[in-house]
Design a protein around this nucleic acid. Structure first.
Lengths: 229, 229
DNA sequence: CGAATGATTGACCCCCTTCAAAAGCGGTGG
DNA sequence: CCACCGCTTTTGAAGGGGGTCAATCATTCG
């Protein structure tokens, strides 16, 4: 066993919590927290790259995906501001991370984070809990994608976005990604996503505005019903 | 994803694979490791149950699944001997665990494990790394299920089973679960699974024996090709 | 404006689902 | 031993949902 830390509420844990709301404690301990700006479609990292850094999304949306040998792309998750990407145990990234729109990330040294975690139980536990949440998200997507119809998938996706948007969003969801990104997340084609959105509009459950980039949820309960949730 | 916040939802962690190679260290520190036998279709725990224990599969196969509102069942993973199920952070189980065949599990106190991890960085780090592996597995399934044809899914499933079986299996894969379990894992119907197995047999890629419970892989490279891997 | 990129809509078709029936398999009991 | 029953798997036929291909529209930008 490595170091035994007996303090029940470690200051590290606290700092991590604050970090998610914009505090600087983690930055302080992990130097080299440089910022990086990305244009739409620019990559944060690619499959096979050495895993040198962990990134926190500051602004924009980052798509985490895997490329199939035949060129198809499977988006696993979208990372939003506050989310961390690039965490893992192996030497190389097994997924790619690409900005769906102009974005900003903060870079932390992966090795520094890991050596810290080796002796800091609450930091390690924090990492554990974070990845658990990722796992929940992945499994939730698995449920959505596995055996649901197009309308269920799109409805579930819109609801998930809406929930992420928080209370202030008032039923307005901004789609900061292209139809192709949504399609690759949901395991559908661009055309089906488009058709499904049209169908939802005709059903008066949503409104699509501003060139299809903004969706207004007109009937959330109905949408939840359609999503089978 | 990876929000570093403190929401104490009950992320669910399925297997703790390091430990499976590591021998008895965990047993030593977590007493009360009683054994429990399960018949086929018996539950280890259900969605909503209080998360009192963590289980290590000793024998058999346990299906981890979630039930949709309309009764459909989505299997997230199969846990094999050596895998841990029921790990998470707090609260209640958000998935159900059900034996697909006669099985045996060993029970550990969840609270004991967690209080240990709070002060033991290496244990917490192990939890972190383990859940990372689960995450990889979940994402891999997501790739399989998301946008692949029936034959690709079944081929990938057989290959995954074969890899798990280890070197000694000599191309023989034992299906310790029903067609319905495979179907619910792959997001297909029982009929499609059956038809696909028949097709693979007609293509002379596999042989199906013993009432459909044993599959012999006759042409692994071809199977890998079909799986698009 | 014209080119480029993305979104929408239409037509057709294929794969998988659905519904239905038959066939294996395993156990139990006469 | 075999008949019978329940469960599972296999196979068949028909229909539909989403993929594919293609044309049109919309938006942005040089």
């Amino acid at each position: 066993m490595l170091a035994i830390n007996t303090s029940e509420t470690s200051p590290y844990m606290q700092s991590f919590r604050q970090e998610s709301r914009g505090g600087r404690a983690l930055d302080d301990r992990l130097q080299q927290a440089s910022e990086r700006r990305l244009e739409a479609k620019e990559h944060v990292f690619c499959e096979g790259d050495q895993r040198t850094h962990v990134y926190r999304v500051e602004d924009g949306v980052i798509a985490i995906y895997k490329t199939l040998f035949d060129g198809r792309r499977r988006i696993i998750d979208f990372a939003y501001p506050g989310d961390y990407i690039g965490l893992g145990v192996l030497g190389e990234h097994i997924m790619s991370a690409q900005a769906t729109c102009a974005s900003k990330v903060r870079c932390f040294s992966a090795s520094a984070l890991e050596s810290l975690a080796e002796t800091d139980a609450s930091l390690a536990l924090k990492l554990y809990k974070s990845v658990c949440q990722d796992l929940v998200a992945a499994r939730s997507l698995l449920v959505t994608v596995g055996q649901r119809s197009a309308i269920e998938r799109v409805a579930a996706f819109l609801l998930a976005l809406h929930r992420r948007g928080g209370e202030g969003s008032k039923g307005v969801v901004k789609l900061a990604m292209r139809r192709s990104d949504i399609a690759d997340l949901l395991g559908l084609t661009i055309e089906t996503v488009s058709r499904t959105l049209t169908k939802l509009r005709e059903m008066q459950v949503i409104d699509v505005e501003q060139g299809g980039t903004t969706v207004k949820l007109r009937d959330v309960p109905r949408l939840a019903d359609l999503a089978n949730e």
